Every structure is written in structure tokens, then in C-alpha cells.
Computed example of a mutant assay.
Amino acid sequence: MMNETLLGAVLLLLLGLGILVVVTDRLFTAVVYSAALSACIAFGYLLLGAPDVALAEAIIGSALTTVIYLATLKKYRIFTIRCLPGDTRKDPLFSKVLEVISRSLKDHDLEAHLIESRGNARTLLERPDTDLVAEKRKDGIYLYGEADSQYLGRIREQLIKAGLDGEVRIVDTAPTRIAAYKGKSI
């Protein structure tokens, strides 16, 4: 009876952890939940009388897989660029600017991800998963980001070297982001 109650509790915990793995928006947190899920599975096997399978699950599922995921996450770093809607991908100037940005980020082992997003620059920058917002206007391309960021400084240097500094304007958004983090509006 005690064993069945404990197994039922483990199954409920598995369900909860499985949902957390899927719905979390942070990869690191998902890996931690996945490791806990695997440890609970190993405990479930132990309760079902399969200690050899439980040991294999604990070693491979909880330990080895988690280490591999964490090592991969450490190497795979993303720099998210949100682009306001328009024909930006067809614009040769915009493509050249994105190429310069991608090249300068590779020096920091970052991969640039361009995501077309609806809204305005201010609301997009309030999202914690946004590093830079790019907008094509009639008078050039605007990049919204934190001016004191080491990455934006490097991007600015590369744009100057490529002769694109007259075509691209960098707008400092640090005050907007700081206020958003503190729950204030400006």
C-alpha cells in the first residue's frame, strides 16, 4: 500500500515536471527540470523493482545527458535581433548591415537570430529576450539597443569600418530598458 501511494506521488511529480520542461521559456531552467524529471523516473523504476534500469536512468538520464545539455548551452549563445515588419530582407543595405552585425557577433561566439516582430521598438526592447531592434526607415536603418553594451560597441566599430555609419543610426535605449525592468514607464 505504501509503495503504491509513493508510486502515485512520483507519477504526479513526473507529470508536473514534464509540464514545466515544456512550458518554461528559459533553456537552462528546462535542462534543470529535465534532470529532475529523469531522477524521478529513476526513482519510479526503483519503486517498480527494476534497480538496474533505475541505475542506468540515473547515470545516463540525470547525469550524463544534463552535463551534455549544459555544455551545449554554454557554447550556444544567441543574440536576438528583432526586426520591425517591412521589406527589409530584400533591401540590399539592410542585408549588408545584418551581415556586418553577424560577423562582429561571431568574434564573441554569438549567433545572430533575426526575428520579424510586430509592435514598436519600445515594446520589443522591454522583452527580456531581445538584444537589438532593427528598423528600416526612409532615411536609413535604425538600431535600437543599449549604447554601453560591449556588443553594440563592437557592431558600431564594424559598421564604421564597412563605411555604413552614415546609413545606420544607433539609438540608445538603456533608459527605456532600465525603467521597464523596474516596472516604471517613461
Rank of each mutant, 00 (worst) to 15 (best):
residue 2 M to Y: 02
residue 2 M to I: 06
residue 3 N to V: 02
residue 4 E to G: 00
residue 4 E to I: 02
residue 5 T to M: 08
residue 6 L to A: 11
residue 7 L to S: 08
residue 7 L to R: 14
residue 8 G to C: 02
residue 8 G to M: 07
residue 14 L to N: 03
residue 14 L to Q: 03
residue 16 G to W: 02
residue 17 L to T: 07
residue 18 G to E: 10
residue 18 G to S: 12
residue 19 I to G: 02
residue 19 I to H: 07
residue 20 L to I: 05
residue 21 V to W: 09
residue 22 V to W: 11
residue 25 D to I: 03
residue 26 R to W: 04
residue 29 T to A: 13
residue 35 A to G: 06
residue 35 A to Q: 03
residue 37 L to E: 00
residue 38 S to G: 04
residue 38 S to N: 10
residue 41 I to Q: 05
residue 42 A to M: 07
residue 42 A to N: 03
residue 42 A to E: 05
residue 44 G to I: 02
residue 45 Y to S: 01
residue 49 G to Q: 03
residue 50 A to V: 05
residue 51 P to A: 12
residue 52 D to G: 12
residue 52 D to I: 11
residue 52 D to M: 11
residue 53 V to C: 01
residue 55 L to R: 12
residue 55 L to G: 05
residue 58 A to P: 02
residue 59 I to V: 15
residue 63 A to G: 15
residue 64 L to K: 02
residue 66 T to D: 06
residue 67 V to L: 15
residue 68 I to H: 08
residue 68 I to P: 11
residue 69 Y to E: 07
residue 71 A to L: 09
residue 71 A to S: 14
residue 72 T to P: 00
residue 74 K to L: 13
residue 74 K to W: 15
residue 75 K to G: 14
residue 75 K to M: 04
residue 79 F to I: 03
residue 79 F to D: 03
residue 79 F to M: 06
residue 80 T to L: 04
residue 80 T to P: 00
residue 81 I to S: 13
residue 81 I to Q: 11
residue 84 L to G: 01
residue 86 G to L: 09
residue 87 D to W: 00
residue 90 K to S: 14
residue 93 L to E: 15
residue 94 F to N: 04
residue 95 S to Y: 01
residue 96 K to N: 08
residue 97 V to R: 03
residue 97 V to W: 02
residue 98 L to A: 02
residue 99 E to S: 12
residue 99 E to Q: 13
residue 108 H to G: 00
residue 109 D to N: 11
residue 110 L to V: 02
residue 111 E to M: 05
residue 112 A to G: 04
residue 113 H to W: 13
residue 113 H to E: 13
residue 115 I to E: 09
residue 118 R to H: 10
residue 118 R to N: 05
residue 119 G to Q: 14
residue 119 G to R: 15
residue 120 N to H: 14
residue 121 A to T: 01
residue 122 R to I: 15
residue 124 L to M: 08
residue 125 L to M: 14
residue 127 R to C: 13
residue 127 R to I: 07
residue 128 P to D: 09
residue 131 D to Y: 06
residue 131 D to E: 08
residue 132 L to N: 04
residue 132 L to Q: 09
residue 135 E to N: 10
residue 135 E to V: 03
residue 138 K to A: 15
residue 140 G to P: 10
residue 140 G to A: 06
residue 143 L to R: 06
residue 143 L to Q: 10
residue 144 Y to G: 03
residue 146 E to Q: 12
residue 148 D to I: 08
residue 149 S to T: 09
residue 149 S to Y: 08
residue 154 R to H: 12
residue 156 R to I: 04
residue 157 E to T: 08
residue 158 Q to K: 11
residue 160 I to G: 05
residue 160 I to F: 07
residue 160 I to T: 12
residue 161 K to H: 06
residue 162 A to E: 14
residue 163 G to V: 13
residue 164 L to A: 11
residue 164 L to K: 09
residue 165 D to Y: 13
residue 170 I to W: 07
residue 171 V to R: 14
residue 172 D to W: 08
residue 172 D to Q: 07
residue 172 D to S: 11
residue 173 T to K: 06
residue 173 T to Q: 10
residue 176 T to V: 12
residue 178 I to P: 00
residue 180 A to N: 06
residue 180 A to G: 04
residue 182 K to M: 01
